[in-house]
């Protein structure tokens, strides 16, 4: 498998220690995600979807196998390098927005840039453009408590895209929204990702949302099958 992808898994296993016998969650996962590719990952609950996303997002490590992010073996990266890569090159969107209640919508979207030490006007302009594109620019100074569910999730999308990451990991990003809001958020996410050229790995139960992706992967009992 060529290592020119944004993200590559090679024979990745993941199991968790448990009394008696370790619980195996992922078995021999091989995948490759190209720049700009949008993939929907469908899986029943408990199939290991979140675990796969955590490993892809450098938040967890595989028990066996190799994970390459932007061509680098993540096993060779220290904690600091992984955190840095996560902040600058990977964007996360969760089912729950996880916005910080003390910060305004704009400040929340700026977080990855500030964490990377980028306080300049360029980053600010980029975030403003993202908020505009996602339709929440008029709510930029509001705290999350004053936003609707759809607006919060759009701000979370803006935060994920703020650093123009090469990879966006979205775990049920519309799971807490109604159909209309969810579709709108996904359209905004995909449109923004296409503009920035980010690859997207999108975990969803919703077939309509999965249909928006370039490819569909399904995960069952810890094994990945690719159905384009």
């Amino acid at each position: 498998m060529a290592n020119d992808g944004v993200l590559m898994f090679e024979g990745v296993d993941k199991s968790y220690p448990s009394p008696g016998k370790p619980v195996a969650v992922l078995h021999g996962i091989d995948l490759s995600l190209s720049p700009g590719q949008i993939v929907a990952l469908t899986a029943p609950s408990g199939a290991g979807k979140s675990t796969l996303l955590h490993i892809a997002g450098l938040l967890d490590t595989p028990t066996r196998g190799r994970v390459l992010f932007e061509g680098k073996d993540t096993a060779q990266m220290g904690e600091q390098a992984r955190t840095q890569a996560r902040g600058r090159r990977i964007g996360f969107v969760y089912q729950f927005h996880h916005l910080l209640p003390e910060l305004s919508a704009r400040e929340n979207a700026m977080l990855p840039l500030w964490a990377a030490g980028q306080h300049g006007a360029q980053g600010g302009a980029r975030v403003d453009a993202l908020l505009e594109r996602l339709g929440v620019a008029h709510r930029a100074s509001h705290r999350p408590a004053a936003l609707s569910g759809g607006e919060r999730q759009r701000v979370a999308v803006a935060r994920a895209l703020a650093t123009a990451p090469s990879l966006i990991l979205a775990d049920e990003p519309t799971g807490s929204l109604d159909v209309q809001s969810g579709t709108a958020v996904m359209e905004a996410l995909i449109e923004a990702a296409r503009t920035t050229g980010s690859a997207v790995l999108l975990a969803t139960h919703n077939p309509d949302i999965a249909a928006m992706a370039d490819a569909r992967w399904s995960l069952a009992a810890g094994r990945l099958s690719i159905a384009t």
């Binding site: 997002g57 938040l59 996560r86 902040g87 996360f92 996880h98 977080l111």
Partner: peptide, 16 residues
Amino acid sequence: RAAVGILRTVGVQRAG
């Protein structure tokens, strides 16, 4: 806890 989780995912180091 959730805020710390998000900060860690957006690139804030443990020391931060």
